[in-house]
Design a protein around this nucleic acid. Structure first.
Length: 673
RNA sequence: GCCCCCGUAGCUCAGUGGUAGAGCGCCAUCUUGGUAAGAUGGAGGUCACGGGAUCGAUUCCCGUCGGGGGCUCCA
C-alpha cells in the first residue's frame, strides 16, 4: 500500500483504494448504483472516499434509491417548468411516497395540457443526460445564486436563524441541509454550462439519463406556502417516477385497481347508498342493500356492547346551545358546528322583539348529553364503572373542500360510549375499551391499521387542564397502547381540547388514512358538568370519563369496509347472501323450494327466475358479488341436490339440499370469509 | 374555506351556436339444459339550477348548487 492508498470498507469488505477515488469509481461496473451510503449517510456518487470510510451501494430500486430518483425527477420537472414559465418562482420539491411534487409561484395555474407539455420537456432534459453537480456554498453565495427566488431566500434566512432549516416547512429539510448549505447544478454535457440550479441538500442521481422514460406527471393542485393557510397558495405539480417503464405501468395498474375499489364507485354500482343533491353535501342516504349492511353492523356492535357491560341509552339530535358552552365545545369548535336555530322569538307589530328566542344547536358530539344522564341522580362508587352507549347521530359543519364520500360527511352516527370511572379504575377501563375495539375490528376482518397517540401541544392554548392532568392521562393511554404491541405513531398536538386520545387509523383503497376508533381520556368535562359520585368513605369525588367510539363513525367504517372487501362482503354482512340460478326454466319450482328452506333459516336469498339465459344469470350473480350462487339442473334435481358456485369461480357440485343449507347457515353464523 | 377541473338517459361516456347520441341497465315479445353477455323491438333527457350577451344556448359569460383532485382542517 503506497502513500496514495488507504483502506476503506466497501459493502462490508476491506478494500484498498487510491486517494481521490470517488464512489462512482467504486461502482463503475454497477449502473444500478445511483448513490452511496457513506458512514451511514446518503452521498452523491461523486463523493471522494476518505480513509476509513464505510461505503455501501444504494441501488435505484431500493427505498433510498427510489427517493433519490424521485427527488432528481422533481428537479428535472422544475427545470422544465421554468423553461415553460420563465417567471415561475420555486417553492419546495421533495420526494413523497411513490413520487414527488414541486411547488411554484406562477401567474396562471397549470392546465392538463401544460402537464403533457412539461412531460415532453422533461424527457428532453432526461435525454440530454445532464450532470447533477453538488456545490457547497456559504449563505452569501446561496443568496446570490438564489437572488431571483424569493421563497428560496426565505428558506436560506430560516436556515441561518436559530435552529436548523429542518423544521422550517414540510419538506424544507430536503432543500436546506442542517449543516452546510449546498446548491445542485444541472450541467450540460457538451457545453459544460450550468443550465439550471436549485438550493438543495441532495443527494441526487449522477445524471438525468437514469430517470429514463419511467415518469409521469399526475396532477396539479394548489398548496399553501410552508403549509400555512395564511400564506400564499402556490401551484403544486405531483409526479411519479420509477426505475423502469414496467414499474411505472405496474404502479398505474395499482392505481386503477384502487379506483375500482373506491367505495363511492362501488356504493353506486352495488346500490348501497347515494348522496342526493337535494339533501346537501356530505349527507348520505342508505338504500335497502346498504341498509342491510349498516343494520348488521349495528346489531352486532350493539350486542357486543351489552356483552361488555355497556348500557344502551338514547339522546336527541339537538339541544339548547348552553349545553355546549358548559361542555366547552362551543368556545373551541363553533366553526365546526352548524349555526344556531333560533326558536320561540316573539315580535310586536313593529317587528321589535318582545320575547327573546332560544338558540338550539344540532349536536356535534354526544358526551354532554351522556353527562346529563350521569348527573340525573346521585351516583355511588358502587355503580362505577358506569358505561353509557348509543348510536349517537352527530352533525358537523365540515368545510366544503373536505367532504369525501362516506369517509368525511356532515351527518353521521357514532357508536359512542362514555365510561365514568374512578381515577384508579381508569387504566383498566382504557385497556378494556382498547381490547374491545381490537376484537371488533378483527370480527370485521380489518387488519390494515395502526394506532396513533394524540397528545397536546404545550405551546397552544387550545388545551385545557393542568400539566399534571395531561401527563397522567397521556401516560395511561400510552402504556395501554404499547401493551397491544401494535405500531404506535405519535401525533403531537392532535389531542382534543379536553384530553389525549388513542385512535385506530385505517387505510382506504387510495392510500388515504382515516381515523376510525378512538379512546379519549377526559378529566375536563366531569369538572365542567360538576359530575360526582359518593365514595366508600362518604366523600364526594369527581369521576374520570373515557370517551370511546369503536367504529368511529358507522358511515366511515362502512365506507372503509366496502373498500377493504372491494364490495365482496363476507356472507354475514352481504346484502344478498345466496343467489339461486336454475339451469333452465323447468327448475324454477325446485329452486323456489330451496329458497324457502334458506329463508326459513334467516338467509337473505334471491331466486333468479328472470327470462335471462343461464350464462347471463351466472354473470349477473358474479357482478353482484353474491357470496353463494346455487345452481340446479336435471342432475341436481334427480339427486335432491344443488351445485355451489363461489365468488372466485370455483364450484362444488351435487351437494344435498339439506347439507347445502347447513353449510351456508353455518358460515353466516360463524361470520366466515 | 382556498386553488384547479368537472356536471348530457338509472350507470359509463360521445357530441353540437340551429332544442341530442352510444354501450350497459330498464320494459315487452320470442327465447332458456351446466358456470361471466341469446335475439328483436320499445320507453327513457327542461343537456344540474338561475341569470346574461346572441335572431337563436345543452354549447359562450357570470352566479348558485353538487362532484372530483390537492392544500388547510378534522372534538
Amino acid at each position: 500500500m503506497s502513500l496514495e492508498e488507504f483502506t476503506s470498507t466497501v459493502d462490508g469488505s476491506e478494500v484498498t483504494v487510491a486517494q481521490g477515488t470517488t464512489a462512482a469509481q467504486l461502482y463503475v461496473e454497477r449502473r444500478e448504483v445511483v448513490v452511496a451510503r457513506i458512514n451511514g449517510e446518503l452521498k452523491d456518487l461523486a463523493t471522494v472516499i476518505q480513509p476509513g470510510d464505510s461505503v455501501e451501494a444504494v441501488t435505484i430500486d431500493s427505498p433510498d434509491g427510489l427517493n433519490v430518483l424521485r427527488h432528481s425527477a422533481a428537479h428535472v420537472m422544475a427545470q422544465a417548468v421554468q423553461q415553460l414559465r420563465p417567471d415561475a418562482k420555486l417553492g419546495i420539491g421533495p420526494y413523497i411516497k411513490d413520487g414527488f411534487y414541486f411547488d411554484f409561484d406562477v401567474e396562471e395555474p397549470f392546465t392538463p395540457e401544460d402537464l403533457k407539455q412539461l412531460e415532453k420537456m422533461m424527457l428532453k432534459i432526461v435525454n440530454q443526460n445532464q450532470k447533477f453537480e453538488r456545490q457547497v456554498v456559504d449563505p452569501d453565495e446561496a443568496r446570490q445564486a438564489m437572488a431571483d427566488e424569493p421563497y428560496k431566500l426565505e428558506l436560506i434566512e430560516l436556515a441561518g436563524g436559530p435552529g436548523s432549516g429542518a423544521d422550517a416547512a414540510e419538506g424544507a429539510s430536503v432543500e436546506v441541509g442542517a449543516g452546510e448549505m449546498t446548491l445542485y447544478n444541472n450541467v450540460d454535457r457538451k457545453s459544460e454550462d450550468v443550465v439550471w440550479k436549485d438550493l438543495c441538500r441532495g443527494p441526487h442521481l449522477p445524471n438525468t439519463k437514469l430517470i429514463s422514460n419511467a415518469f409521469a406527471l399526475t396532477r396539479s393542485a394548489a398548496a399553501y406556502w410552508r403549509g400555512n393557510e395564511n400564506n400564499k397558495q402556490l401551484q403544486r405539480i405531483y409526479g411519479t417516477a420509477w426505475p423502469t417503464k414496467e414499474d411505472l405501468k405496474a404502479y398505474q395498474e395499482r392505481l386503477a385497481e384502487a379506483e375500482r375499489r373506491d367505495h363511492r364507485k362501488l356504493g353506486a354500482e352495488l346500490d348501497l347508498f347515494s348522496f342526493p343533491d337535494e339533501l346537501g353535501s356530505g349527507l348520505p342516504v342508505f338504500h335497502p342493500k346498504g341498509g342491510i349492511i349498516k343494520r348488521e353492523m349495528e346489531d352486532y356492535v350493539r350486542t357486543r356492547h351489552i356483552e361488555e357491560g355497556f348500557q344502551y341509552v338514547g339522546t336527541p339530535h339537538i339541544s339548547k346551545d348552553g349545553l355546549f358552552h358548559t361542555s366547552g365545545h362551543l368556545p373551541y369548535y363553533a366553526d365546526t358546528m352548524f349555526p344556531a336555530l333560533k326558536v320561540d322569538e316573539e315580535y310586536d307589530d313593529e317587528g321589535n322583539v318582545t320575547k327573546p328566542g332560544q338558540e338550539y344547536r344540532l349536536k356535534a358530539m354526544n358526551c354532554p348529553m351522556h353527562n346529563l344522564i350521569f348527573r340525573s341522580r346521585g351516583r355511588s362508587y358502587r355503580e362505577l364503572p358506569m358505561r353509557l352507549f348509543e348510536f349517537g347521530h352527530v352533525y358537523r359543519y365540515e368545510k366544503s373542500g373536505v367532504v369525501h364520500g362516506l369517509t368525511r360527511v356532515r351527518g353521521f352516527a357514532q357508536d359512542d360510549s362514555h365510561s365514568y370511572v374512578t381515577k384508579e379504575q381508569a387504566p383498566a377501563e382504557v385497556k378494556h375499551l382498547l381490547d374491545f375495539i381490537l376484537g371488533l375490528l378483527k370480527d370485521f376482518g380489518m387488519d390494515d391499521f395502526y394506532l396513533e397517540l394524540s397528545t397536546r401541544d404545550p405551546e397552544s392554548d387550545k388545551f385545557i387542564g393542568t400539566d399534571e392532568q395531561w401527563e397522567e392521562a397521556t401516560k395511561v393511554l400510552e402504556t395501554v397502547a404499547q401493551e397491544t404491541g401494535l405500531e404506535l405513531v405519535p401525533d403531537p398536538g392532535g389531542a382534543a381540547y379536553y384530553g389525549p386520545k388513542i385512535s385506530v387509523q385505517a387505510r382506504d383503497a387510495i392510500g388515504r388514512t382515516w381515523q376510525m376508533s378512538t379512546v379519549q381520556y377526559d378529566f375536563n368535562q366531569p369538572a365542567r358538568f360538576g359530575l360526582e359520585y359518593q365514595a366508600a368513605d362518604g366523600t364526594r369525588q369527581e369521576p374520570v370519563m373515557i370517551h370511546a367510539a369503536k367504529f368511529g363513525s358507522i358511515e366511515r367504517f362502512l365506507g372503509v369496509l366496502v373498500e377493504h372487501y372491494a364490495g365482496a362482503f363476507p356472507a354475514w354482512l352481504a346484502p344478498e347472501q345466496v343467489r339461486l340460478v336454475p339451469v333452465a326454466e323447468a327448475f324454477n319450482d325446485y329452486m323456489a323450494d330451496v329458497a324457502d328452506q334458506l329463508r326459513r333459516r334467516g338467509v337473505r336469498v334471491q331466486l333468479d327466475d328472470s327470462s335471462d339465459r343461464f350464462p347471463k344469470k351466472i354473470r349477473n350473480a358474479s357482478k353482484d358479488k353474491v357470496p353463494y350462487t346455487l345452481i340446479a339442473g336435471g342432475e341436481d334435481v334427480e339427486a335432491g341436490a344443488v351445485s355451489f358456485r363461489f365468488r372466485d369461480g370455483s364450484t362444488d357440485n351435487g351437494i344435498p339440499v339439506a347439507e347445502a343449507v347447513e353449510r351456508i347457515v353455518g358460515a353466516i353464523e360463524r361470520r366466515e370469509n
